[in-house]
Simulated assay, not measured.
Amino acid sequence: MKQETDMPNLEPLFVSRIPPVERPVQRDKPLLKEIVEADRLIRASRGREHFKVSGKGLAVAVLDTGLRTTHVDFNGRVAAQRNFTSDDGGDVDNVSDGNGHGTNVAGIVCANKDHVGIAPGAHVVPLKVLSNEGGGSFEAIKDALQWLLDNGEKHNVSVVCMSLGDSGNYINDTGFPLDAIQERIRSLKAKGIACCVAAGNDYYTHNSKQGMSYPAIFRDTISVGAVYDLNEGSFSYNSGATAFSTGEDRITPFSQRLHDSVAGAVATDIFAPGAPIRSSGISNDRGESIQHGTSQATPVVAGVVLLLQELFVNAHGRLPAVDDVVQWLRSSAVSIVDGDDEHDNVDHTNLTFRRVDALAALETLSRSMATAELMAGSPGIPRTHA
């Protein structure tokens, strides 16, 4: 009998409802084969081709509104599933997505048919923690993370994607003593499982004050903000945020952000394309959806993490430490300045943040492994001694 992971008797700080995520726009069929704009900006397909990685052998757990498991983009690659909501009578095996947010997010990570995600060889484990209306409870998040601690390894889960939050705006994680969600994220990290979490979409709402939502604020997460990937015109959002024009690597006006100089270890780790992103949809088994948000940037980073993990596993037979993954992401990232060319209705920090570059991250890891082999004295290359 499998022994369940022992956890302290902790309770989550937040027991209120999670604000509903917005429903993506749905289309009956795809317009594009690949997530073209996002892929071009972060050079994911070039990285996959050069290093022969796709996320194969690994899985991403997507904590969201569920998944259209019959969509051709996920055919044969749903490793496991679990419902933590009361939808569909609380049937634990039914993760039907009546919202579309979860299917969009999962497709960005690992779609592989009509759409091609960042890590198209990976499997997906949909954990339905948000209802078809888009909201949910942090109790469901806690239970899903515990399920992963108990079951994730047998399904080869190496990344958790959480495109959700409480809409708060925090600048440190010291005010969450004995938080059960934080403790479970920390325990997953100890197993080498990276938790990628959306920084939040409420920068305008919080009057352009730096900060991130819960649980992205936890230092053991990989927190993700959003940029535009090219000029797609102007956009206005329900929060009141408005981009009068858009362009490559401009931070979106809704994306929460927290700089190293303000928050140190709990700063926003990385930015990624998040507006607008086309992905898998729920209108039918070949449907497409379009959405803007740090919710969409987060699975981009989750996909890059899967590529890095596969390259490392192929060389070492084990997952890398999450802190090493963060280092590869950040040290290879493209520098972006908040306020240099943004044209929107929010105030800017004029500080430099980092945007993910998949090819550069893989190159950084490859060089790191080569250096380590030389230092250790790799077979066929004798070490010299002074």
Rank of each mutant, 00 (worst) to 15 (best):
A333R: 03
E153W: 07
S86H: 09
G98D: 05
S167P: 01
R77D: 02
R48H: 06
E133W: 03
V62Y: 06
R68K: 15
E37C: 05
S45P: 00
G293F: 15
S16C: 07
G339P: 04
L311P: 01
V105H: 06
D229V: 07
G303C: 15
P120A: 12
I118H: 02
V157Q: 00
L148H: 03
K154L: 12
D220M: 14
S86A: 14
A333L: 07
F176M: 11
H292Y: 08
Q81M: 15
A358P: 00
F254D: 06
A376Y: 14
K191P: 05
Q309A: 10
E34S: 08
R355V: 01
K142H: 06
G152H: 01
D344K: 12
P276A: 15
G247I: 02
V53C: 06
T205Q: 13
G211F: 10
G89T: 13
G281E: 03
H316C: 07
A263M: 12
R355E: 14
I222G: 03
V95Q: 08
W147D: 02
V304E: 00
A315W: 04
V105P: 03
E342N: 11
D229K: 12
T352C: 12
A44H: 02
V346M: 04
I277N: 03
K33M: 12
S245C: 06
V197A: 10
D249H: 12
G200C: 05
F312I: 00
I282R: 13
D39S: 04
F176G: 04
